[in-house]
Structure formats: C-alpha cells, structure tokens
Simulated assay, not measured.
Amino acid sequence: MDLRYHTPLSPEMQSHLGIAPTAPLAMADQVRFSELDVLNHVNNAVYMQWFERLRVRYTQEWGLSRSTGADKGPRIVIRSGQIHYRQEMLMDEDYVVTCGCTGFRTTSFSLAQTLWAGGTLRATFDCVLVLLTSDGSARYPIPDDLHRRFVEIDGARDENM
C-alpha cells in the first residue's frame, strides 16, 4: 500500500498502518534532516509544529478557519495543551499525525492529536481551543452545524449536557 504524504488518510489506510482508533483527520509525512537535533532525533519543538500543521488543516476543513480567505469567523486560540512524548523519531521515518474533537462546550472544544510511526504511538497532544470574535473581545459560539459534525464524525460529546 502506497503512503501518500500531505493527503488525508482514510480510516482503512489508518487501520492498515496500525493506528487505532482511527481519527477523523490523519495525514502522513516523513522526518526531514532539518528537524533533527544534535542527538540525531527529532527536536521536541518539531512535534508541536507537526501537531499545529494538522490542527490548522482540521479547522480549515471543519469550516472554522479564517485562513481560507473568509473575512468573518472566529479567532481560534489554544487555552491549554499537554504533550506526552512516548518514543523518539529518527531521520527518514514515515509518520502519521491524527486529529479529532473529543468534547465541546458553547465556545470551546477539546482536540486529541496523536503521532504514529511504524504502527507505534510516538506522541500525543491534547488541547482545548477557544473561539473568540475576530477582534478577540468576546467568546464566539460554536455553530450548530459544527456541533453536529463533532458528534457525528468525530464522536465527540457535548459537555454542556
């Protein structure tokens, strides 16, 4: 099976790569030389860049991001986040980053992100994102259609109930 970089991976492809459970959005890439530190493994800060890249893509595909050219829409900020490094990453390793919503409230939602290589979970990042108005002065409510998408596609729970 051919691993395609920078292209969303189907649940079937994720399962084939040993990712369980599968996620609503997953994309593959390969470790580059520029991402290594003096110990010849991936620098810890790079993991955050990988997670961010997919998180931005997730908000774009779920219709939240203003980076797609829309003038209106929320400002998205990370309220909190926790990363757990499980195993080092090395040069030329293929990897997959996943992303999915686990729960949401009125103006915020929780994302679970994972990093996999060779069928092994290498790192996790759990964060809470808050939606603000475009000027940042107030909270921005999550639209109803996004609530439905969180529940139906991501399997997230409504934490307001």
Rank of each mutant, 00 (worst) to 15 (best):
G18F: 03
F109G: 02
V42F: 04
A26P: 12
D94M: 10
W116N: 07
P11L: 00
M27Q: 08
H16G: 02
G103C: 02
L39C: 09
Y47M: 02
S65V: 09
V77F: 13
C101N: 01
T124L: 05
N40S: 10
E35Y: 08
E88W: 00
D144V: 11
C101L: 01
D154T: 08
D135Y: 12
S134P: 03
G103F: 00
G81S: 12
Y95E: 01
A70H: 09
D158Y: 00
M1K: 10
Q49H: 15
L25V: 10
L3K: 06
A138R: 14
T22N: 02
A123V: 07
S10W: 01
E35P: 07
P8F: 10
T22P: 03
M91S: 12
S137F: 01
Y85P: 09
S80Y: 02
R105C: 01
L90T: 11
L25P: 11
G155Q: 01
M27I: 14
E35H: 06
Y47R: 04
G73T: 05
R148F: 02
M89E: 03
E12M: 12
A123C: 07
G18A: 07
R105F: 08
M13A: 15
M89P: 05
N43A: 05
P74K: 00
L3M: 14
M161K: 14
R139M: 13
I76P: 12
V42Y: 00
E88A: 15
D144H: 11
D158S: 04
F125E: 08
R148T: 15
G63F: 04
D135P: 12
